[in-house]
Design a protein around this nucleic acid. Sequence first.
DNA 1: ACCCCGGGGGTGGTCCGACCAATACCGTCA
DNA 2: TGACGGTATTGGTCGGACCACCCCCGGGGT
Lengths: 233, 233
Amino acid sequence: MDETAPQKGTVTQRAIERIKAMIAEGRLEPGQRLPTERDLASQLGISRSSMREAIRALTVLGVLEARHGSGIYVTQLEAGDLLETFGVVADLSRGPRLVELLEVRRILESTATALAAARITPDQLAEVEKHLTAMNATDDPEEILAHDLAFHREIAMAACNDTMAAILEGLSSRTFRARVWRGYQEEGAFARTRREHAAIHRALLAHDPEAARAAAAAHVGEVEQWLRTQLGE
Amino acid sequence: MDETAPQKGTVTQRAIERIKAMIAEGRLEPGQRLPTERDLASQLGISRSSMREAIRALTVLGVLEARHGSGIYVTQLEAGDLLETFGVVADLSRGPRLVELLEVRRILESTATALAAARITPDQLAEVEKHLTAMNATDDPEEILAHDLAFHREIAMAACNDTMAAILEGLSSRTFRARVWRGYQEEGAFARTRREHAAIHRALLAHDPEAARAAAAAHVGEVEQWLRTQLGE
DNA sequence: ACCCCGGGGGTGGTCCGACCAATACCGTCA
DNA sequence: TGACGGTATTGGTCGGACCACCCCCGGGGT
């Protein structure tokens, strides 16, 4: 018979691959609107239900975006869109994997901070300082955490590598930090954290990449070591 | 009325969050079987169609695994499962983002190779050598690529950080390497690649982390620089 | 007593058709 | 000309039906 249907895996899986291929080949550009669910389904010869599952899958991956009443669009395919799912890893990891994640973060964060020291602009530096002072001016753990996240986010952005910044964002996802930070800060690590943040800021101000790298690595490494001992018990 | 339904976003999105939360809270363990689609749907008060979309989404994220005729199971939630989607980023990226990805890979790969130099066992070293010699013994680009991937994969595994290895795996996804490598190797870079691989191997053999770091960074950096100039034109 | 195998119930995979809700478009009217 | 409103379009949800596949259990043979 005709061999038009390779029949590998589920029809939904095939639809996902087809759409992904269309984007990879450039037949679908970022921001472009796709045909309607009904049209897409008939084009690929599958039911609307299966097509919807494929679209939903690509939506959670940050590849597509569905607007109710309007249509389905390809996202801008920027690092932030595609790496949003990275946070899921951090949220669902526990035990030894948390240490591994912190190890990855230490490696990337230290390099990003070093790059930032060389590249950061006065405006960006001012933004970093804003969060630094705000972080030291309050006792509310929630607020401290928020400014802590923003502090590192600004630095990552100053490194001029959106992909790295997006990965670091995922590695610092709110639930992840909240889970690890809670225990860490309960042991009176506030003072140490402030000192480490000050060291990072000093290195940025001096545009000293090596000092920045060391300060950032030590900062993340402290948490990493604390977590290691926690898991050892 | 009763406020049991926050009504934020689509019902499918809510179902995804519910299941994710169940896993994060430990109410669902890795490997455990979930209720049937029909039961889950009725438990959350939604239709089976919507529940299926939620399950499909979590399946592509590597969180759940559906076995036809058997049931739905939580994966082992290992780094490899959850970071499989990382390959999508590499597959759909182009232009400047490819350089960013290579930059991230250079940072992680150099550190992983350094760690491997300190930790690699004789057995693992033998495996690395196997792919090194196989890579130099053939002229088939496909085979070279396969052994090249395996060469770096073995090294990443020797670094004893599954998370880092999984990320590097995604950054070296077959389609990504095929796209970049093709042009790179067409310019007669085989000899240079062989020399660089030999340098990495020497450093591993000598258990010299700093030499390994430098060799790996240079290896990836070469491709990175080549790609930079390509994009500059 | 043990093994093989065949059938039936349960489960995911696919499809269909209907209706709801948000949006976009366009013609009408002031 | 511009604001308004209605209508067609489109994604979101639902319910049911049927198929394909897997697992388990029980019967029959050795």
